[in-house]
Write a protein that binds this DNA or RNA. Structure first.
Lengths: 256, 256
DNA sequence: CGAAGGATTGATGAGCTTCAAGGATAGTGG
DNA sequence: CCACTATCCTTGAAGCTCATCAATCCTTCG
């Protein structure tokens, strides 16, 4: 298996050493790489939820369709993300998921996840932390939607993307690729596409942000963070903290 | 220990049979009941996150404060809820949590959680599902904020509360208590308190919803669901599905 | 080259916020 | 028991942010 097909293992190794069993459990999640085209659906709302998937390459997004034809995008997924964790509990998917670019995904059955629970507390802890991170991202987006102007919304979201990208791909600079149309951005931020366009114009005229096609350019990142009221706390991963606790062992209740 | 102090055990028993060890693990989370007054803070943004808590009695809410003095409420917690699960991964709390009524809480250290991971896959699965449910609630609220009118927002939120209440307290009717001021509702929904008031007036004039002090009255629940565009799918708990998988045992990788 | 999707810009108006003032209700201390 | 205060709610008036509709342009791609 090529290394690029095992980004999940790579991701997890970033958090903790893996023994052979653990590496095997993770690798099992990426056994079935599959090419997907741009705009391809990974699954649809209300369909049975028996598999999740690892997004090995490419970008994806989850959304809910509204009766009036509009939609709300809930999450943007980057390479290495585990897609569907939040969708996990109900027997049917609550959201649709589609690709934003072409890419590679690896589907795996839910049972692989419960296998991890029964086999590796360490991986379970990491998984819990990852789910927590996704929830933190959603919480921040709630704040964004509820209490910020269009200008701040756009800026804040761009900051979020930039920071998330720079975690998995540390050589990112103030210029980077963001394969989202203005309509997609509008559906993320609860705005109209027209107003997103106007907001970009405004930011461009002030020299804060340039965007041509999917290329983003932020001349002064610090200034831009201020426009966005962006604080990176919610994206700081501290999986290690929780892991340390878990490794200290349990406190004497119910020995294994 | 009184039964009312062990609502978590009760909640979990609703999902699955507990053996002695498991009951003990859960009971450990509720060993330190503590009375709290209305409006009391349970913790504050940026403070160290070394404990979570079970909300045994009363209502609470989590929120983020903005620089301009406004705030966004992220979550409303009801009796029996586990508070802080979403806040879990970072070493500092990302949100503040305060009481909406007086009540009883039980704080417990994070290590209790990792103990559960290492000791009981079954409880781990339930915990994962609970976290997923909280995330589903936030996702739905995102949709609410992004793509619905004030009228729908208010109605939808009331529906959510009504349904969540009726899960833990099945004898609830079309009249129930909702201890949230209009300012709190506004901070949940990303509206101004003034507009929440106007929206209530509107709904009242149409005979759809009556509210006096904290008492809610919905004469025709079905009609009200339609105003709200409310679908209860996202609140349907199907912990059992995941549990069944987990109990079928693992697929031969890394025996325990 | 024509078609289709994406972006921009202008005009108009709805929906919501803000400010301000007044009324209702509950709790507090004299 | 009654002012006194604090909190919550209501209502009006004014204005701003953003949505909607529509026309145009630009780019890409078959």
């Amino acid at each position: 298996m090529l290394d690029r097909d095992r980004c999940l293992v790579r991701n997890f190794k970033y958090y903790c050493a893996l023994d052979e069993t653990e590496a095997e459990l993770l690798a099992a999640l990426e056994k079935t790489p599959q090419n997907v085209s741009n705009a391809q659906m990974l699954w649809e709302e209300n369909h049975p939820a028996d598999t999740l998937c690892v997004l090995s390459e490419g970008w994806a997004y989850s959304y809910r369709s509204m009766d009036d034809g509009t939609r709300q995008i809930l999450n943007i997924f980057l390479p290495g993300d585990l897609v569907g964790l939040g969708d996990l509990s109900p027997r049917r998917h609550l959201t649709s998921v589609a690709m934003l670019t072409e890419g590679v995904i690896c589907r795996f059955p839910l049972t692989n996840l419960t296998d991890i629970f029964t086999t590796s507390p360490k991986l379970t802890t990491v998984l819990f932390s990852l789910a927590g991170q996704q929830q933190a991202i959603m919480a921040e987006r709630l704040v964004n939607m509820g209490r910020r102007t269009a200008r701040e919304k756009v800026a804040h979201f761009i900051c979020e993307m930039h920071l998330r990208l720079s975690k998995t791909c540390p050589n990112i600079t103030h210029r980077f690729n963001l394969p989202l149309s203005q309509q997609v951005l509008a559906d993320v931020l609860g705005l109209s596409a027209v107003h997103v366009s106007r907001t970009f114009s405004e930011l461009r005229e002030e020299g804060l942000l340039y965007r041509e096609r999917n290329r983003i350019n932020i001349p002064d990142l610090k200034a831009f963070y201020e426009v966005a009221n962006f604080s990176d706390a919610y994206l700081s991963d501290s999986v290690d903290e929780l892991l340390k606790m878990s490794e200290k062992g349990n406190n004497g209740v119910g020995l294994r």
